[in-house]
């Protein structure tokens, strides 16, 4: 039997379905007429009614729910076995995951184990004849590549926020099937010992309507206090470039870019950031980019709607004060 349809491997965080899973379901809906079969979701761990409902209302017509001890938290070697067993049952043509810390780890492990083809960090997916075509940024975002696979089973991870989720339809119908899986514990080699959470203060970067990011040009960790002050006035969150996080000026969780977070705020203010492609990969989806940079040739201005060419030491305090006045904060 030829494989048909799409299976979305859901991500559940804090009892809620992650936005990237809803985005994958919307993409699955778009591709479904060409791939046949249905749109199913695989939920692993503690699968509550609310999780199942959220998956169905966002486009899944079937939910495979796998609840077993030891599956509540992500464990790569156990999750690969779950994915393998559910794929054997569902026989999908395409499996979608988010390009998140879990997707980055699980997708290649599952794909190479199953001898499926794989494209990661996709910003577009389509069907061309009998093949699946995937577009993904390469060379740090300087270019995009279109790859094609005609394999019986293709897996893809999608870049968060590259696709738009469908609005929840509470009247949508779907079936929830509890699947029991057998986990061979002797194959579970990688074991989690400890989670160290970095408590980012205030708004989550990915959810903030305004993001103010600082780059290497700030010269050290101290100026980030000024960015925090501006973020507070504008109701936003503070992000940073990779150079800043590598230097330890800001925690890694604040990194915006190819290897960090993807943000799509209404307003992205880049302070002393040159705009390297690998940084823009994380913020080019912002509705409006505003740049403050002393070098008028910085590539950040190419993607900005508004820009000021000047030293941040002079521009930022006056900008912040005027924002405070205008916002009455």
């Amino acid at each position: 039997m030829t494989n048909q349809g799409i299976l979305v491997v859901a991500e559940i965080a804090g009892g809620k379905v992650s936005p990237v899973t809803h985005e994958a379901l919307a993409l699955a809906h778009k591709l479904q007429p060409k791939l046949g079969g249905g749109v199913a979701a695989l939920a692993i761990g503690a699968v509550s009614d609310a999780v199942a409902k959220s998956l169905i209302s966002h486009g899944a017509t079937k939910v495979y729910a796998v609840s077993a001890p030891g599956l509540a938290a992500y464990s790569p070697d156990a999750y690969v076995q779950v994915v393998q067993q559910v794929i054997a049952k569902a026989n999908p043509r395409l499996v979608l995951l988010g390009q998140t810390d879990i997707g980055r780890d699980l997708a290649p492990k599952a794909a190479f184990h199953l001898k499926a083809t794989l494209t990661m960090d996709c910003v577009d997916l389509g069907v061309e004849g009998a093949a699946i075509r995937a577009t993904k940024p390469v060379y740090g975002g300087n270019a995009q590549a279109i790859y094609e696979s005609a394999a019986a089973l293709h897996m893809a991870t999608i870049r968060p926020k590259a696709f738009e989720a469908m609005p929840a339809n509470d009247a949508a119908h779907g079936v929830v099937e509890q699947v029991s899986v057998t986990i061979d514990q002797s194959k579970v080699k990688v074991k989690t010992l400890e989670m160290k959470k970095e408590q980012a203060q205030g708004l989550r970067l990915e959810d903030a309507p305004v993001v103010i990011s600082g780059g290497r040009g700030l010269g050290g960790p101290e100026p980030f206090v000024k960015l925090e002050e501006l973020a507070k006035i504008l109701g936003g969150a503070v992000g940073a470039s990779r150079a800043v996080c590598d230097a330890g000026w800001q925690p890694v969780a604040k990194q915006v870019g190819l290897t960090g977070k993807t943000v799509t705020p209404d307003l992205y203010i880049a302070v002393a950031i040159s705009g390297a492609s690998q940084h823009m990969a994380g913020c080019s989806g912002a509705k409006n980019i505003v740049a403050i940079n002393k070098d008028k040739d910085s590539s950040i201005f190419k993607e900005s709607r508004f820009g000021v060419v000047g030293a941040w030491e002079e521009v930022l305090p006056a900008f912040t004060e005027m924002c405070r006045e205008l916002r009455g904060a």
Partner: peptide
């Protein structure tokens, strides 16, 4: 997996530069 093509996405936007008498004024 085969490569169909590689291309440079066009993202050029027209940046509106805000100028002032000095940095603070521009801010």
């Amino acid at each position: 997996v085969s490569t169909v093509k590689l291309f440079i996405p066009q993202v050029e936007k027209n940046c509106e530069f805000i100028a002032g008498e000095n940095g603070a004024d521009a801010g």
